[in-house]
């Protein structure tokens, strides 16, 4: 028995952290895909996009949603990173282990950590940009995208989708009773689908006539 460990022990919190990670992750996943679909309405034309943005605004969904999403990102990031190999020794062991093992799922965790941290940074920039030109309008978005944000947003799209879908894969692996061989390929298809959708939306924004809209 060690005093400090015994006094600090609260296994319920260890379980709850896992559940918090799970539910914030699921919440962000749903948000992300919903967001992608909303953004993709630009493909149907600026009018459709603006109507949806306005609707979110009118029903106060943006004012509840955005703070919640920001909170979820922060909490999810903190909780999920609690298991990352921060100490040099752990990191070195992990990398050597992964190289020896040459095992895709093990590398996928490395991808999770890197994409997770990248999402934190890129999403912060994205949220700042969006909020600083509130409310959301097709013209403003198109302007941002045409004036240098295209590559940043595409990168965010790519890594956020990868992070989300690998995350979903691992949620299913950890919690479900379905063998992972059964769902892996569907997740890959879904990832490709969402990235393609987002990419098309970005391209549409890129070629949108901003002047014609304002």
């Amino acid at each position: 028995m060690y005093l400090q460990e015994t006094l600090a022990k609260s296994p319920r919190w260890e379980a709850w952290m896992e559940l918090i990670e799970l539910f914030t992750g699921l919440f962000l996943l749903v948000f992300l895909q919903f967001h992608m679909l909303a953004v993709a309405t630009i493909i149907l034309g600026p009018a459709a996009f603006n109507r949806d943005a306005l609707m979110l605004d009118e029903y106060y969904l943006s004012y509840i949603g955005i703070p919640l999403v920001i909170l979820a990102i922060i909490v999810h990031g903190l909780v999920a990173l609690r298991k990352a190999p921060w100490r040099y020794k752990e990191m070195a062991i992990f990398i050597q282990h992964s190289r020896r093992l040459a095992h895709l799922d093990t590398w996928a965790w490395f991808v999770q950590i890197i994409t997770g941290m990248a999402v934190l940074i890129l999403a912060a920039i994205h949220i700042w940009n969006t909020l600083s030109t509130w409310p959301i309008e097709a013209a403003k978005s198109a302007f941002r995208i045409q004036s240098g944000s295209f590559s940043n947003l595409f990168l965010l799209l790519l890594i956020a989708e990868i992070h989300a879908m690998v995350g979903l894969y691992r949620i299913l692996v950890k919690w479900s009773w379905i063998h992972r061989q059964k769902f892996t390929k569907w997740l890959v298809y879904a990832t490709i689908g969402f990235v393609a959708l987002g990419f098309i939306a970005l391209v549409v924004f890129y070629f949108l006539d901003v002047k014609g809209l304002t």
Binding site: P11, E14, A15, E18, K83, D105, V173
Partner: peptide, 13 residues
């Protein structure tokens, strides 16, 4: 039900 137990598993399979 701890980080030494099942919640230490990060699902790398």
């Amino acid at each position: 039900g701890t980080d030494e137990g099942v919640f230490g598993c990060i699902g790398l399979m």
